[in-house]
Design a binder for these strands. Structure first.
Ligand code: MN
Ligand code: MN
Length: 577
DNA sequence: GTTTGCACCG
DNA sequence: TTCACACGTTCTG
DNA sequence: GAACGTGTGTCTCGGTGCAAACTA
């Protein structure tokens, strides 16, 4: 990790200018007159006015107190503010002599203590010390005109231009959750991103309507919050006003949002409305929810039709697994379909381990099981890695394909992943690069070589599959030594079938017995069961002949409070099937 | 007084 | 812009 | 056991200082 370099004095202005210039140039045909004026006016400001504006914009909220602002690199803040006001980048209010702002939210600039003093001096009322600031604020706002006299004498600023800035940020990053701190953290060496080539034509947005659609989406998302306290009508209205844009990110988000909205409408008890919402989403579990509702409503014909469609072309492995368990239980009448889904995969191997509850709770159930194995079988090595080993190795081996420079995949320097990583045609668009990566799977030697090479070369660079702190060189060597190449091929192929769904659900532990082999162990505490994506992987393990078991932990009632971590393993095979 | 949360900075 | 997982409760066969 | 809702650690950094809320 390189030593943090010093940044230039006005690093933030450099970054801001870079974003503005980039967007104004690359998206010249997308930005509107208002945004163009914003850009031109900003460029025309003096440097210290620019600095102040960027400083304020990068802080929370619109309101600022003059007496709290101090920046070494801006000697005359007042002059800068006056200049900014002349170009309508902000508004200056002098509370004691000028008029008050129209909107009530500037009052929050003052501390609880200051508000209390103002109320007491102006009205001679005692303010109870127990009042919270929020209550004090509402009391103040009822009578701001009069109470303002008791506040500290300072100008306050209201900063404008957030809308315009959002447009620039959105066009630059393709989202509204990244901001200028990305630059700083990268330049300090805290974040490291792969350095793909950003050729000048990299645009994610091709028409103004895409931009508007994104902004509408973000606005609706904000209005919806976590959906908890919205009525059915509000939920339906939000679903109906979602932008229909087919821009890929937005389509993905819309389909996902529709599932969430449908779920909430279901909870409120409106199955029919939920059905129509789900019908508009292609994302799992939209069809699962529809089938559940149809069956619950007894709409046999529709249910049969939908179930056939799902069985014919499951949208993903999880939907397939759902059908396998749901149809035989709830749609017994449909013999044809039950027949078709009869590909019985036997239940996962299960073993039971007993240990004192205290051990389980203090170490965490996964570590407790790992420790029990290691003491029971000295020489065993157990690693608690969940999704970090197999997807991590995947990230290393296929690094160059993941970051292949496909048009549109990269459009700014702070992407952890290509924008289309989870799209269905991700692999197809990079077939050549993937073929090259597959060559490393020829033998254990080539696999290890490629893994270690990437491990060293890309150390610390952000990757959606690789977590550098957990994936040690030691673990890579051991796992390549123990896990046959054919197994690696199998799991990578399965991952590539559906990166989004399959990147999770891998078992808690991997066990390397003393001398040879490996085994995957999913630990389940009392009352826990396999999750959907874990079932999906277990089914795949069986198809691939990969050794995997579930370890069910039970509390040992005889060993109360005992400090010993001696877990007894029982080789008890589940009698299922 | 002390604790806690969080905005800000680089 | 989260996510992935575990855990607790309720219902049902 | 299935299904559902909710809690918990990842919250991508580490350091600083202020203000609010709590404790007596
Ligand atoms: Mn786990
Ligand atoms: Mn587990």
């Amino acid at each position: 990790m390189p030593v943090a370099p010093d940044l230039p004095e006005k690093y933030y202005l450099d970054n801001f200018n870079l974003v503005l210039n980039h967007v104004a140039q690359l998206y010249a045909d997308i930005i509107n007159e208002d945004e163009r004026t914003f850009y031109d006016d900003f460029i025309g400001l003096s440097e210290s006015a620019q600095c102040l504006y960027v400083r304020l914009l990068s802080r929370r909220g619109d309101w600022f107190r003059r007496d709290k602002l101090a920046y070494a690199e801006i000697p005359d803040i007042t002059a800068a503010a006056v200049e900014l006001q002349s170009q309508r980048f902000l508004e200056i209010y002098d509370l004691q002599s000028g008029g008050l702002p129209q909107e009530d939210d500037w009052q929050n600039l003052f501390t609880r203590q200051e508000l209390a003093t103002a109320i007491q001096t102006s009205t001679a009322q005692k303010v109870p010390a127990s009042l919270r600031k929020q209550e004090l604020l509402t009391r103040f706002e009822e009578n701001s005109e009069q109470l303002v006299a008791g506040l500290p004498d300072t100008e306050i600023y209201c900063v404008y231009g957030e809308q315009e800035l959002d447009t620039f940020r959105l066009l630059f990053f393709g989202n509204l959750y990244q901001d200028f701190t990305e630059f700083v953290l990268r330049d300090l060496g805290i974040y490291r991103y792969e350095s793909y080539d950003l050729n000048a034509a990299s645009r994610w947005c091709h028409q103004r309507s895409d931009l508007e659609a994104h902004r509408l989406y973000y606005a609706l998302r904000e209005e919806a919050g976590d959906l908890k306290d919205l009525s059915k009508e509000s939920l339906c209205r939000i679903a109906d006003s979602l932008p229909a844009s087919e821009e890929s990110t937005l389509r993905r988000r819309r389909h996902r949002f529709l599932v969430d909205i449908g779920r909430q409408i279901e909870r409120l008890g409106y199955s029919d409305e939920a059905l129509t919402i789900y019908e508009r989403s292609m994302r799992h579990p939209a069809r699962e929810r529809r089938l559940r509702i149809l069956v619950a409503q007894g709409q046999q014909e529709d249910a049969d039709e939908l179930a056939f469609a799902m069985a014919k072309a499951p949208v993903n492995e999880e939907e397939h697994q759902f059908l396998l368990s749901f149809v035989p239980r709830k749609m017994k009448h449909n013999h044809e379909l039950c027949q078709r889904l009869a590909e019985r995969v036997s239940a996962p191997l299960e073993d039971v381990m007993t240990m004192p509850a205290e051990t389980r709770l203090s170490l965490g159930v996964e570590r407790a099981v790992a420790a029990a194995f290691e003491s029971e079988h000295p020489g065993d090595r157990l690693v608690y890695c969940e999704n970090l080993l197999i997807p991590g190795m995947f990230g290393l081996i296929f690094w160059s394909a993941i970051y292949a420079e496909v048009p549109g995949a990269f459009f700014h320097p702070f992407q952890i992943r290509p924008s289309d990583l989870y799209e269905a045609d991700f692999v197809t668009l990079r077939q050549k690069e993937f073929d090259v990566c597959w060559q490393a799977l020829e033998s254990a030697d080539t696999l290890l070589e490629r893994a270690l090479e990437t491990y060293q070369k890309k150390q610390g660079i952000a990757n959606p599959f690789v977590h550098w702190a957990v994936l040690t060189e030691d673990l890579i060597r051991l796992s390549v030594e123990r896990i046959p190449v054919g197994v690696w091929q199998g799991v990578f192929r399965f991952l590539l079938q559906d990166l989004r769904q399959h990147k999770a659900g891998l078992p808690d532990l991997i066990r390397f017995p003393t001398s040879e082999g490996f085994e995957l162990l999913e630990v389940k505490g009392p009352g826990d069961t396999l999750q959907k994506n874990q079932r999906v992987w277990f089914a795949e393990f069986e198809r691939l002949g990969i050794p995997a078991r579930v370890i069910r932990v039970k509390d040992d009632p005889t060993a109360l409070g005992g400090a010993g971590l001696t877990g007894a393993e029982q080789g008890e095979e589940s009698p299922e099937d």
